[in-house]
Computed example of a mutant assay.
Amino acid sequence: MTDTTSSSAPAEGRPPIQSFEQVLEKRESRVAEFDSTPKSPLRRLQHLLHANPTAVPAIVLALGVIGFSFIVGGRFLSSFNLSLIIQQVTIIGIIGIAQTLIVITAGIDLSVGAIMVLCSVVMGKLAVTLGVPAPLAFLAGLTVGGGCGAINGLLVTRLRLPPFIVTLGTWSIFFALNLWYSGSETLRSQDVAKAAPFLQVLGTPVDILGARFTYGSFFMLLLIAVVWYVLNRTALGRHIYAVGDDPAAAELSGIRTQRVLFKVYVAAGIVCALGAWALIGRIGSISPQAGQTANLDSITAVVIGGASLFGGRGSIVGTLIGALIVGVFRNGLALSGVDVLWQEFTVGILIIVAVALDQWIRKVSA
């Protein structure tokens, strides 16, 4: 039999050392160390912007206001002009809310403008042409908006079609229904004011310290506050972000992703109907040709506002800031005498820069 004791004499009162214990005594006793290399200033900035997606839009908005205040002068900073910018972005801001909800879920909705105009036509035809009480016509418009959103939601969730393709198709469908139902006729502002003044109530002006606002501007801010609360303080809001960030992981965690997506599209349709109410108040009349650029304008506001087209990242406040950036640059360039062509050129550059910056910021989580 092999002797398993150590050749050296054991200490008094201690059992003999076994051979396997001799191996353990020779083990590595150093503790693992993880050296953290200090982050470069650019890397720290990247992490900061990733944690605060509205930081860049806020900085761009501030620089735009400061820059045009020097270029244009007192005309730009006048109370009337600043309040005019807010009025001009009211429709974009409301439709941008609907677009933000879709973009957070990694989708995109090209039909928001068509839904808005269709709802405005439904409200106007019922209230002005058919004599339906204006509040009931308004509710009918909300129902149409929710129904249009439900159609988009069903096609995306049940048939698993890409949101871009779905909404591209429904944009054409809703626009065709709009022209058919309206007969391509515009309801004059005088007729709307006589038969259904309730539909124009959001266009009522309010003068505050030399600035002129409308009820529509305050309605936009109220709607933004409500949606912000839903996204940041409710379980539904957390589920929306989770579905946009990683739908597979969200489903494994117990979230009914398809149901959440359907609710988002229905909510976006209802918000578009509320935008239709604000649109009637803004322009006074009801035209089937109104809001032709609302689709692209809403996407512009969302992208410039810091939302990611890849989903899971974005905020309602950022969308408002994005809409204000577009309004500030268009207004400032117009007051500077710049042609409309170059105004759109500038907005296009802003979109490309915003998307490129989003790609760079997303590398933090890669």
Rank of each mutant, 00 (worst) to 15 (best):
S78E: 10
I349G: 10
V303E: 04
T257K: 01
S298A: 15
T143C: 14
G64K: 02
A273L: 12
W360C: 11
L324H: 04
A278G: 10
Q200N: 15
R330E: 15
L279R: 02
Y241V: 03
S120L: 02
A294K: 05
A294G: 03
W342I: 13
V338K: 11
F164T: 04
I59V: 15
M1A: 15
R313I: 13
P163K: 01
V206G: 10
V201F: 15
T105D: 02
F345C: 12
P57N: 02
A273W: 10
G216I: 00
L159W: 06
V201H: 14
A51C: 10
L177H: 07
I95Y: 02
V201K: 14
V65D: 01
S19M: 14
I283R: 03
A127R: 09
T293E: 15
F345H: 09
C272Q: 01
V243W: 00
R256F: 07
G314E: 10
I283Y: 09
I102K: 07
I351G: 06
K125P: 05
P53H: 04
T167W: 01
V112F: 00
V230F: 13
V112K: 00
A9I: 08
Q359N: 14
G13V: 06
T105M: 05
L101F: 04
I351C: 06
L61N: 02
I321F: 04
N331H: 01
T2E: 15
A9V: 12
G305K: 06
I92M: 15
I240R: 00
L63Y: 04
A249P: 03
S172K: 11
W277D: 11
A11P: 11
S253N: 03
T319C: 11
N331G: 04
L84I: 10
V122I: 13
I86W: 02
N81C: 09
V192I: 11
G141I: 12
V264N: 04
A290H: 13
Q87C: 05
L154A: 14
L309E: 12
G153F: 00
Q190C: 09
V72H: 11
L209S: 08
G327L: 05
R158I: 11
L335R: 09
G348V: 09
F70H: 02
P163S: 04
V226P: 01
I86K: 00
R158C: 10
V347D: 01
W228Q: 14
I59D: 06
L341Y: 15
L63F: 07
